[in-house]
Design a binder for these strands. Structure first.
Lengths: 148, 148
DNA sequence: TATTGTTATACTCTATAACTATA
DNA sequence: TATAGTTATAGAGTATAACAATA
């Protein structure tokens, strides 16, 4: 009978990434909440800004949510004047969403907030550690097909 | 007017940690689901295993959830024979939770599953990258006061 | 009167399903 | 008839509040 040496579950990467991710999401949510939006709204605007989706259905697939969720997110962003719903002339069932100048400004504010949080988060790491963390997380993010 | 250069929000650490954490949690949840439990149950057992809490109220504080949530988690684990509720003789309002041998076995299975997921997750990283990622995540985890 | 655990209730988020309009 | 968007409904998860037992 072999008795494999196992670490504590709380020290594993998946476990810690799960907990850390929840904290990161909460902090980011708190940072953008004064702007009247939540992280999913930011994700939607980021996809639009990258030109990575046209119709709401495509948006839903890219974001990994269901179509009805995109409706609610878009309603909110439209009310804020951050996005516009434009009928696709080629297929009038479709809405082409477009980021307005106000939306770009809003997205920039979110990016600034995220950058500030990054600085807080990595304050206790050396520059080299912070950089290698950033790089490793980037690799995992692209590998897992994150809505980026 | 200075125009600061900002990265895309999707490349920031908080944003990616949020998304990555959601994926990690989902994978871990899928891995322990056949065992009849969810990540929070694992967290509760881990705290008990570490002797980091006695009463259900302490458990709630350590886990960062409300007391009524601990009731449900404990109900489930008790039904599985993984934990026991023992009245505290010093204060009969309190339940001292104790991990049974079956609970230790269950926790070990979860740890093994998490370790396997770690290997998958870091497969595309070099050993050195994986190790530095693990270390950096450990620093952030302890810094943010994760239930560990 | 204060506190531990429990139960009952409400709220948030998301998914499923039914519906409208276009194709 | 099939599809894009919308609306209506239901489920999971968690928080708040009321309650019972004990201090």
């Amino acid at each position: 009978m072999s008795e494999a040496e196992l670490p504590e579950v709380t020290t594993t990467l998946v476990y810690r990434l799960g907990g850390l991710g929840a904290i990161a999401s909460a902090r980011f949510a708190a940072a953008v909440e004064p702007l009247g939006i939540r992280p999913k709204h930011v994700a939607l605007m980021a996809v639009l800004s990258a030109g990575a989706a046209a119709s709401q259905l495509e948006l839903a697939q890219t974001l990994g949510v269901v179509a009805s969720v995109v409706v609610g997110l878009t309603d909110r962003l439209e009310a804020l004047g951050a996005v516009e719903r434009l009928r696709d002339p080629d297929d009038r069932r479709r809405h082409r969403l477009s980021l307005t100048p106000a939306g770009r400004t809003l997205l920039a504010s979110c990016t600034a907030a995220a950058t500030a949080l990054d600085a807080e988060l990595t304050a206790s790491l050396s520059p080299a550690e912070a950089q290698s963390l950033h790089r490793a997380v980037g690799v995992l993010a692209s590998e897992t097909g994150l809505p980026a």
